[in-house]
Simulated assay, not measured.
Amino acid sequence: MTADELRVVVETADEGVVLIRVRGILDGWSGPSELVEALEGAARSGGRLTVADLSRLEFADSTGLHVLLNAQRRHTETGVRLVLAGPLDTGLSRLFEVSGTIGAFTFADTVDAALSC
């Protein structure tokens, strides 16, 4: 994996639960389309919960934030809960804080905690 590469792995964790593991860099250069597609598919799945595991996400910029905000909106529209799981990198936490979007998401400290939401 190169430094600017984004990896996305989609797993079915349980009936009605989609787990999306994100690793690397989430910005305009990394080509976030794979994550967009995974999140959109999870929203359309008719399940009850999507967990986005961001614990191995090294960096995100406004493009990454835009992807997550659109995913949250889409999940709300389809009635599927979206939880962002950590622990989050300090820079990623800061991105949510300085952009004023921290309240737009549900966060969990770990994937296990998110799965019980």
Results as ranks from 00 to 15, higher is better:
residue 22 V to R: 02
residue 29 W to A: 14
residue 86 G to T: 04
residue 63 T to M: 06
residue 94 R to V: 00
residue 49 L to E: 00
residue 81 R to K: 14
residue 17 V to I: 15
residue 100 G to W: 01
residue 8 V to M: 07
residue 117 C to P: 09
residue 7 R to K: 13
residue 102 I to K: 14
residue 23 R to S: 15
residue 48 R to M: 05
residue 94 R to P: 03
residue 15 E to G: 12
residue 28 G to H: 07
residue 14 D to Y: 06
residue 10 V to K: 15
residue 63 T to P: 09
residue 18 V to N: 13
residue 33 S to C: 11
residue 23 R to I: 10
residue 4 D to Q: 15
residue 6 L to W: 05
residue 52 A to P: 06
residue 60 A to L: 15
residue 78 T to E: 13
residue 7 R to F: 12
residue 76 T to K: 12
residue 64 G to L: 01
residue 26 L to N: 06
residue 106 T to P: 04
residue 70 N to R: 13
residue 58 E to W: 03
residue 107 F to I: 06
residue 21 R to Q: 15
residue 97 E to G: 05
residue 26 L to T: 04
residue 29 W to R: 13
residue 45 S to N: 06
residue 103 G to A: 09
residue 99 S to E: 01
residue 16 G to A: 12
residue 74 R to A: 10
residue 37 E to V: 12
residue 62 S to M: 01
residue 62 S to P: 02
residue 50 T to P: 04
residue 48 R to Q: 09
residue 62 S to A: 10
residue 21 R to N: 07
residue 18 V to K: 13
residue 3 A to Q: 14
residue 46 G to T: 02
residue 101 T to F: 03
residue 73 R to L: 12
residue 39 L to K: 00
residue 79 G to C: 04
residue 68 L to F: 00
residue 98 V to S: 06
residue 33 S to Q: 12
residue 73 R to A: 11
residue 31 G to P: 08
residue 64 G to N: 01
residue 30 S to N: 04
residue 117 C to V: 13
residue 62 S to Q: 07
residue 67 V to W: 02
residue 58 E to V: 09
residue 4 D to T: 09
residue 12 T to S: 11
residue 13 A to L: 08
residue 8 V to E: 04
residue 32 P to T: 02
residue 111 V to S: 02
residue 75 H to E: 06
residue 46 G to H: 05
residue 60 A to D: 02
residue 63 T to L: 02
residue 82 L to T: 07
residue 100 G to R: 00
residue 92 L to V: 15
residue 53 D to K: 00
residue 81 R to A: 13
residue 105 F to E: 03
residue 100 G to F: 01
residue 68 L to R: 02
residue 57 L to F: 00
residue 49 L to I: 01
residue 11 E to K: 11
residue 116 S to I: 10
residue 56 R to H: 15
residue 51 V to K: 03
residue 87 P to V: 08
residue 114 A to Y: 08
residue 27 D to C: 12
residue 63 T to I: 13
residue 43 A to D: 01
residue 67 V to Q: 00
residue 90 T to K: 14
residue 61 D to S: 02
residue 83 V to N: 04
